[in-house]
Design a binder for these strands. Sequence first.
DNA 1: TCTGGGGTCCTTAACCAA
DNA 2: TCTGTTGGTTAAGGACCC
Length: 486
Amino acid sequence: MDAFFAAAEQASKPSLRGKPVIVGGLGPRGVVSTASYEARRFGVRSAMPMAQARRLCPNAAYLVPRFQLYRTVSEQVMELLGRLSPLVEPLSLDEAFVDLEAGGVAFGSAAAREAGERLRRDIRAVTGLSGSVGLAGSKMLAKIASEQAKPDGLVLIEPGTERGLLAPMPVRTLPGVGPATGEHLRRAGMTTVADLAEAGEDELVRLLGKSHGASLYRMAAGHDDRPVVAERDTKSVSVEDTFDVDLHDRVRIMTEVGRLADRCVQRLRASGHSGRTIVLKVRRYDFSTLTRSETLRGPTDDPGVVREAAGRLLDSVDTTGGVRLLGVGVSGLADYTQEDLFAQAAEELAAEERAGEGRAEEQPEGEETPTAAAQAEPVEDPAQRRWLAGHDVTHAEYGPGWVQGSGVGRVTVRFETPTSLVPGRVRTFRVDDPGLAPSEPLPLVEKLATAAEGEAPVGQESPLARRPKSRSEGGGPGSGAAMSRP
DNA sequence: TCTGGGGTCCTTAACCAA
DNA sequence: TCTGTTGGTTAAGGACCC
């Protein structure tokens, strides 16, 4: 999907269409998740510190991500992909590989292109958003094709043209070559894919190690036989928070670690897992990051156990100078969903949360009164309610709208919906206005009768009617496809 | 006013057991 | 019994991806 988060926000808010939109963390240490193409023209990029984005593009709309909405759209898109093939490998909310060959959909270039264009039409019809499609004989090439295709395009790499196409590209094009490897290769005099292929496997292995070197050499030669894997097991679950202000108070740090452990266990249990290895992550004031881990005798999903282990790990860490980030994770996962343990742990969690709250209130204030990283937990007390930029609300008198901004006891709302034809009116309220309430995201597109019935959307014949052909034709174009990233 | 959050995989070192 | 090899596990860090 093209600039996914930002595009979803523009679809949701007519007044933002055609304008720079930047989605990301809005706190003092936030970074950009996604910038709309209008904002990219100002040089704003993903992962850029928000402060820098504001300097480059002060007039953009700055919004907090709404994963609920993105997940809904993502499910719609993944459902369309599932109609093409049983082999769909999601990479993220907005990107996936599809093995068209396994779906029996497309074997020649022409058929693959047709399937890709149909998919793009369907995505637009169902979600209102644009997606880009890359078609090629391997995952690596499909991915590269999809990068070239966006925004709102389709690129097919013809079999036989791979090497020539890759040769002049910068090494950073290849998956697995990031800033560090790129710099490493540059110092060795290699800047293009052709340089890598020329250097030979032995040289790359010497430079980058056995695994990385060998796989990079194969990629540079245009070879990539990694299969599309539909379902992959989760390996770890973790949560982390960056604090608006560094934490110094040891007691406060321990409290936060406890909270993180609880949140981590909640996620762990929601995913139906337990785990053996507890990991504590600490990022210090100077951005240096360390992890400490402890492996238990057996897997657990008990919040008390995880919290204690995380606490022990914290004891071994020097935090003088301040802590910018804390994280708690669990790995070494096992399936673990016994009902009685579930109930038991839920009770303990509730009990410990009550105890934890009590402790927190007793604590003396830290020297810098840090505002914990924004947790968007909806707070019921209207006086404390946080109105997050971009979130949907309804007003008793004015109807549905979204938060344009808030501060000094006021919240500004623009009253419009995804289907409004003109930008909506703006009104400002007190943050505790009784008529104002948070609400769920509205659908971006009015439901089509056909799509709602679970039938093929406009213009699509049912792929179920087609029978898979023989697999003997091999990896031509169409055996892989990638959607673009935001 | 620099640098999020959630993951994956790889490498290295230390340790232990066979 | 001593020494060396191998292999598995644990711990820590780093690179990369979206």
